[in-house]
Amino acid sequence: MIKKTLYFGNPVYLSLRNGQLVIKLPEVEKSTSLPETLKKQAETTRAIEDIGIVILDNKQITITSGVIEALLENNCALITCDSKSMPVGLMLPLYGNTTQNERFREQLDASVPLKKQLWQQTIQTKINNQATVLSLCTHEEIKCMRVWANNVRSGDPDNLEARAAAYYWKLLFSNIKGFTREREGIPPNNLLNYGYAILRAIVARGLVTSGLLPTLGIHHHNRYNAYCLADDIMEPYRPYVDELVFQLTNAHDIPIELTKELKASLLTIPTLEVVINGRRSPLMVAVGQTTASLYKCFCGESRKIVYPER
């Protein structure tokens, strides 16, 4: 069963009762004119085990330590947002798998040639997925990107990822004057940033559930980045976010601000339909298959990481 994503953008009280997440509105809680029966009816509960991601996007949210503990024990990712409503923090469980120590050792012992081969597979799939998205959005066949994907060598020493990215971003939002893909760039960079933050949390959660260290990447190795492996594994999934943002941009005439309506659309990312191993699957479920296959590569059971393909 796919886990739910809960977004809280207003003041709210989050507490725990009988293993359930209890959601209360402070205005209702503090009201002296409402009878107790109506206050209780205003409460909402959610089963903790059904939740995969929680997003806290308001400075007046109150959450108990009991809720945080219960969420983490059930492998939930907890995201906090800054004053601009952009995800700024991510909390994950320390123990996501019963054989975690063993899996850590196998990940740490992974050879350089293996990691280079895994990166090759990752970039090949990413470029092919980008080519498909570009073809769907521009209605043109992107043959050069298919060639670049086939030419990616172990470790991508020719940096074909960057070449493909430059071509891809130039065409995907060609109707937006001055657009370049930059974190602080003009819209729809804000939508892309938000979508990638959600995707990163999904992948980091999947890695922890598979008993892997999100910090230790197969390619990314920034000393200040606590989620290098998540950033590696999310690469082939990025085009799914790009396509969604492209659709939202066309529907909303290049939105300047990240409205609640747009956030609601971006929060559907975990449920986006992808094809993996020849079967249709929600993106969050597919990520679990990808991270499980990555562990099999680390322990020697396989040499191929399983990714979705557009």
Rank of each mutant, 00 (worst) to 15 (best):
R223L: 06
G9D: 15
V287P: 06
P26M: 04
G278S: 08
R183Q: 10
N150P: 00
F179P: 01
A204L: 03
L272P: 01
V147Y: 08
H139A: 11
L213W: 00
E261Y: 12
P35S: 11
P236Q: 01
L272S: 01
T271H: 11
H221V: 00
T125G: 02
R181G: 14
E182Q: 15
T32H: 14
L229N: 09
S135E: 07
G211H: 12
M86V: 08
L171C: 09
Y7H: 07
W148I: 03
N58C: 05
C81D: 12
G185Q: 05
I305N: 00
G206Q: 03
E161A: 10
T180H: 10
E261F: 10
I48V: 11
C297D: 11
V275M: 15
R103S: 06
A166G: 06
T32A: 06
I48C: 05
P236T: 01
A264L: 02
L191N: 10
K30N: 13
Y194T: 14
I23M: 08
S111C: 00
L16S: 11
D57S: 09
A77R: 01
L134D: 15
N175W: 14
K24I: 09
R146I: 10
C76N: 12
G195S: 13
D242T: 02
R200S: 11
L172T: 07
E273P: 00
I127T: 11
C228H: 03
F104C: 01
N250Q: 11
D50F: 01
I142E: 13
R17W: 07
E36A: 03
K304P: 01
G89E: 08
L192N: 05
L114N: 14
N250H: 06
N225A: 02
V245M: 02
I218V: 14
G9Q: 10
R153H: 05
Q60I: 06
T290L: 00
N193C: 04
R146D: 08
H219F: 07
N250T: 05
I55E: 06
I53W: 04
A77N: 02
L136A: 08
L199M: 14
G155S: 01
E301R: 05
G278R: 14
N222T: 06
D253A: 15
T180Y: 09
N18P: 00
I305Q: 00
V274S: 02
L294Q: 06
N128C: 12
Y7M: 02
L34Q: 13
I142F: 03
P282A: 10
S31W: 09
K24W: 00
I23K: 09
Y168C: 05
R280K: 14
I127A: 13
N97R: 05
N175C: 12
S15C: 15
D231N: 05
I202K: 06
L258G: 09
L262V: 14
P214N: 07
N193F: 00
G195F: 13
H252A: 14
A162M: 05
A110H: 12
T259A: 15
L171R: 10
A47E: 15
H219E: 07
L207R: 06
T271R: 09
L258F: 12
T64M: 04
P270K: 11
K304F: 10
N277Y: 01
I186N: 13
Y196I: 01
Q121R: 08
I254K: 02
P35E: 10
V28F: 00
H220I: 02
R103F: 08
P188Q: 04
L134E: 15
L244S: 10
L34P: 10
N225I: 00
L21K: 08
L212K: 04
L283F: 11
L267H: 12
N159R: 01
L90Y: 11
E243A: 05
I305V: 14
